[in-house]
Design a protein around this nucleic acid. Sequence first.
DNA 1: ATAAAATATAAAAACGTTTTTAACTCTTCG
DNA 2: CGAAGAGTTAAAAACGTTTTTATATTTTAT
Lengths: 350, 350
Amino acid sequence: MQDGGKKAKEMTNRQASITDVARLAGVSVGTVSHALNSVGYVKQETKEKILKAAEELNYVPNRAGRILKTRQTRLVMLAIPDTSNEIYFGMIEGVQKEIKALGYSLLLYYTNGELEGELDAVRLLQERVVDGLILVHFSYKQVLLDEIRRCSGPAVLLGMCNHLWAGAGHPFDTVSIDVYSGIYTAVQHLAKIGHRKIGYLAGRRNVDVYGQRFAAYRDALKDAGIPYREEYVYWNDWTQMGGYSGGRTLYQMKDRPTAICASNDLQAIGCWEAVRDLGGKVPGDIALTGLDNLNICKILGITSFDMKENLMGTEAARHLMSRLSGSQMSYQDLYFRPEIQVRDSSLYTL
Amino acid sequence: MQDGGKKAKEMTNRQASITDVARLAGVSVGTVSHALNSVGYVKQETKEKILKAAEELNYVPNRAGRILKTRQTRLVMLAIPDTSNEIYFGMIEGVQKEIKALGYSLLLYYTNGELEGELDAVRLLQERVVDGLILVHFSYKQVLLDEIRRCSGPAVLLGMCNHLWAGAGHPFDTVSIDVYSGIYTAVQHLAKIGHRKIGYLAGRRNVDVYGQRFAAYRDALKDAGIPYREEYVYWNDWTQMGGYSGGRTLYQMKDRPTAICASNDLQAIGCWEAVRDLGGKVPGDIALTGLDNLNICKILGITSFDMKENLMGTEAARHLMSRLSGSQMSYQDLYFRPEIQVRDSSLYTL
DNA sequence: ATAAAATATAAAAACGTTTTTAACTCTTCG
DNA sequence: CGAAGAGTTAAAAACGTTTTTATATTTTAT
């Protein structure tokens, strides 16, 4: 029925190389290369002969061979922590647009937000699988910095962070969005409209960027003169599931918070669901803020923060490209600040 | 401040090669290769010398060199049409899990749902940038099939489709989910609860898979004895925006539909928003179905279809892997069927 | 008619690995 | 003590390109 057997056998045949084409066309490999890449002189007649031979043999140049000789891959890698968070789409878009215009292709890599995954991505740069790397990282470990230092190609670090690398003399550009300021502003916002009992959905423990967010929560509380209550902080995961169980827990406390600040939107959404499932209303029964400005927050009316992800991707790509072209020399750190989008979920004043 | 200048210069230095390591350690390159890969005999003392030299030179093996010699990359590519559709996350997860266990790394590629992007992905397989390709495709063009035929490595096609490739003698495995049956069932479901005026959000015109969905809509109407009305069909884009403007348009008609079938969830969500913004209620004023079973549909209570995306990813990867290991011989076509998840949005009976 | 320049091709080197072959040294066993 | 074998390393070949150099041919300018 399916001609599986024959095809499969055919498939194991070695793919034609430039040597095969040269032999069939009766010319040297150098000439074939010239003809196919339109470089140097080659007679029209010869060129046609070569093209015909290439066609006949189904010739496709082997990338590894080419890379080895030319020392460039024309590929750029974007490594993201999480494929279930819409915020990275904007980055992908921004990067894609920028590099495509310069004849590069984009490969995505998925780190799972773990140091090991981030190191894997860096290793692919070291091994020169790609010419450059844009790494959205959650870790701020020395070992990551060390590995990047070993790379001969450029990396740009895209951070959801405050200024941790700054001044460290790191050998790469950074583009960051100051999430610390986002969380700080959220808490401040809630305090300003009268909340004193502010819960916090903290995300995954031991992940550096979530540690920073937590610090922002504590600092903002302190600056607002609100005492810190450990039982109001819920560590779990940065996902919707994490937010759901956090929301459930906090909402069911006897002395429950009047507001909840989630350390990202996925958690805020999960929390929103939990409150609804418990018969509560947002903001009627509890105020809520998120961070990332996901589409669904606009729909559900959850206060959040625009993370300028498209711009971040664009800028990161721009830096990478100018470094690849050898023009840019001194390393730059670029900072953006999240912009609050106040919506119904936090309009509930006490 | 930043030691940009010096570092940048340092960075342009050629990365150390195995030859450099051999020279520094005072041995031959072959021995270095053996030592680093723990192959054959090499004296402990020599091995240590080599390791030390490699460390000192920051040596990282060049992947292109290795690929050229070994003829395998240990990379698998998953090409997806759309990074803003959560349905592909499940696939990514499924594929990742499966191939990682066998020592392969996953690269993602983004096709934008366009033939050109899909061909680009196939070309990367032809050029042997990766050992195998899993392609989620929206196109059903002969040229795509032809290009795949030229590949020396295996491809698995992941389709949101009905049986178009079947029996075509194609040289690849397929894993498909019968979206035709999904849309057909949705319309049937709406008809069964009494709707006779069923609008349709059709997605992007000229995209093959959306053509198939449209056919399902028409067929289901016919089989239910409902006359087709062109003005109830809205072609735009498969995105949330597309759904929004479609919902707006259909809802504002004088003789408006009593139900809307969206060809995917993003459109259903957009439609839901549009109805809400116009002061309408789902399902109070209009019934609604989607397809993909996105998270948000559970939250908003929109009837949708589970697409078994995780299973699809897993199966696709399993097929690819067994073909890479050379064990499987005849090509297989695997079909799944979407499973309806009835929710509030379509509980409104006339 | 000759020299210079332009056109056209072949041959060889190089990129960085792995693998194969060969050779040399040391044990071990009869 | 000699031979077989194991341990150890070097040398060379091969993977598939691109690029450089060399050489031959044709065209153009003097």
